[in-house]
Amino acid sequence: MMKYRATNFRRKLKPYIMLMPVMIFIIGIFITGLVFGLLQSLGYFPALGLYEISLDYYKNVFRNTDFLSSFQFSLYTSFLSTLLSVVLGVFLSYLIVYTKSKHIKGLVNVYKGPILVPHTIAALLIFILFIQSGLLARILYGFGLIGDMSDFPPLIFDGGGIGIMLAYIWKGLPFITFITIDILRNLDERYAKVAANLGASHAQVFRYVLLPQLFPTIASGFMILFAFSFGAYEIPHLLGASTPKALPVLAYIYYANIELADRANAMVINMCIAFFAFIALGLYVLAFRLLKKYGGA
């Protein structure tokens, strides 16, 4: 019995041992970059002749109105786009699993497509579709629904970040659908049938029976999408307005500034992004533990 347990333990441990060299290399690069970024954000920047560690750069950045507006903009666009992606993705997965419509079930063959598209291409597609002289505006103009293409609302390069959120939703919705659709398919249908037999509506069955079992998966997906969109650079850079800018774009501007001392300010912003990423990671781990505890997967 002891020999069997030892053999089983070695079998489980083998994949981790084989991955260890690569993981040490990757984690080493990550930790090294994080440590150097933290030191540079504190003013220790030997390449610029800065050797004194202080919190002055943090104070300067946190008092900067550009940083505050960028922080609010990133938080707003990331949270709202992630929330809409989760709501629409869960709704779509519910329709695919429980509807009897062949047209809805046909979506199962196409909803994964945007997951494979790079974010830069997603930004280009949103630009082509929703710019004022884009495809959608031309279609509406051709049908006489707008008098001029300038009547089409400015969704790209707008201060509200609508174009940015459209790109995030287009990428995030299929991701949420992908991680929830199999969960719905594998849930025990007896609970839903009992609730329906007792007079519960479809909305009540979903809210009180299915949603509690899906919640850990939904929460983990929310954290992944939020952390990514909050720290993403390419979509806000390509589709965002000149002001306010997303935090990653502002960090790049600081780092590329001719004034080399601004690079420390850029590192402060990067540390703020990393801080929120770690918070999202902690919440993801919590959601994963809930998922294992309550059998959501």
Score class of each variant (00 low, 15 high):
P244H: 07
S70Y: 13
I181N: 08
A246I: 01
F152S: 08
I26T: 15
L83W: 10
L184F: 10
R289V: 02
F228R: 06
F157P: 04
D158E: 04
S54F: 04
F278R: 07
N64I: 11
R138P: 01
Q40E: 12
G231S: 15
D148Q: 05
L38D: 00
L155V: 13
H103G: 01
L283S: 06
I104R: 03
Y58F: 13
A122R: 02
L129C: 11
I176V: 15
K171I: 10
L116P: 09
S201P: 04
G282P: 02
F73D: 03
V117R: 12
G159M: 14
E234S: 11
V90S: 05
I104F: 01
K193G: 02
I183V: 15
Y168Q: 10
V194L: 08
L155C: 06
R185M: 11
R263F: 09
L95E: 11
I128S: 13
F228V: 11
G240F: 04
Q213E: 12
S70E: 10
P118W: 14
L80K: 07
S133V: 10
T65N: 12
A122N: 09
V110T: 11
G49D: 02
L184A: 09
V22E: 00
F230A: 02
A47S: 13
L283W: 01
I279Q: 11
I27R: 03
T120R: 02
G134W: 08
I224V: 14
A232L: 02
A200R: 06
D158H: 08
L210I: 15
V209R: 13
V285D: 11
P114D: 09
N270A: 12
L198W: 01
P114R: 13
K14L: 15
F73I: 03
Y58P: 03
I169E: 00
K102E: 05
L239W: 07
G172H: 10
F25K: 00
P216F: 08
Q213V: 07
Y98C: 02
N8H: 02
L250W: 04
A274S: 11
I253S: 03
L136A: 14
Y208M: 06
L75N: 06
A241Y: 10
N186S: 14
V35Y: 13
S201L: 08
D151Y: 11
L68C: 09
T243D: 06
L84D: 01
F157G: 03
F62N: 04
R263Q: 15
K100F: 01
M149N: 07
S220F: 00
E189W: 05
T65R: 12
L88D: 00
Q213T: 10
I24W: 01
P174G: 07
G240K: 03
Q204T: 07
F275P: 09
Y191I: 02
L80Y: 12
I224W: 03
L214D: 09
F278L: 15
I121Q: 04
A287E: 07
G221K: 13
M2I: 12
A287N: 01
G147R: 13
L116A: 15
S54G: 09
I139D: 03
L55V: 14
L19W: 03
E52I: 09
